[in-house]
Computed example of a mutant assay.
Amino acid sequence: MSDHDQKGSRSAAIAAAVILLVTGLAFFVLPDVMIALGNISPWLAAAVGAALVLAFFLLFWLRARYQRGRE
């Protein structure tokens, strides 16, 4: 494995770890946020929950698209 390949795989692993850590933290606090928002409006709570789940997949889709563009 070349030095460039090692740096690329290390960078990808670090990026994935950071993404998973941030989203894991967001999903950890999501129930409390949804309960608080549900007191205001159940639709608002549902929208925020759905947006967070979609953002998780959107982030990985954008990263994959960026990586394909660099190759």
Rank of each mutant, 00 (worst) to 15 (best):
M1K: 08
M1R: 13
M1T: 14
S2H: 06
S2F: 04
D3Q: 14
D3K: 08
D3G: 14
H4T: 14
D5E: 14
Q6H: 08
G8Q: 14
G8S: 04
G8I: 09
R10G: 04
S11A: 14
S11P: 03
A12P: 00
A12R: 05
A12W: 10
A13M: 04
I14K: 13
A15L: 12
A15H: 10
A17C: 10
V18K: 01
V18T: 03
I19M: 00
I19Q: 04
I19L: 02
I19K: 04
L20E: 01
L20I: 06
V22Q: 05
V22P: 04
V22N: 01
T23H: 15
G24Q: 15
G24K: 13
G24W: 00
G24S: 01
L25G: 15
L25A: 12
L25T: 06
A26F: 08
F27S: 07
F28Q: 07
V29H: 01
L30Q: 00
P31Q: 13
P31G: 13
D32G: 10
M34D: 07
M34P: 01
I35Y: 08
I35G: 08
A36S: 11
L37F: 11
L37Q: 08
G38F: 12
G38S: 04
I40V: 15
S41Q: 09
W43I: 07
W43M: 13
A45Q: 11
A47M: 13
A47N: 06
A47F: 15
V48K: 07
G49T: 06
G49C: 07
G49P: 01
A50I: 15
L52M: 05
L54I: 14
A55I: 01
A55W: 12
A55N: 05
A55Q: 09
A55E: 05
F56K: 01
F56G: 05
F57G: 10
F57R: 04
L59I: 07
F60N: 06
F60G: 05
W61F: 11
W61T: 09
L62E: 07
R63C: 08
R63G: 09
R63V: 07
R63M: 10
A64E: 02
A64P: 00
A64N: 08
A64S: 09
R65I: 06
Y66C: 03
Q67D: 08
R68I: 01
R70Y: 03
R70C: 08
E71Y: 02
E71Q: 08
E71A: 03
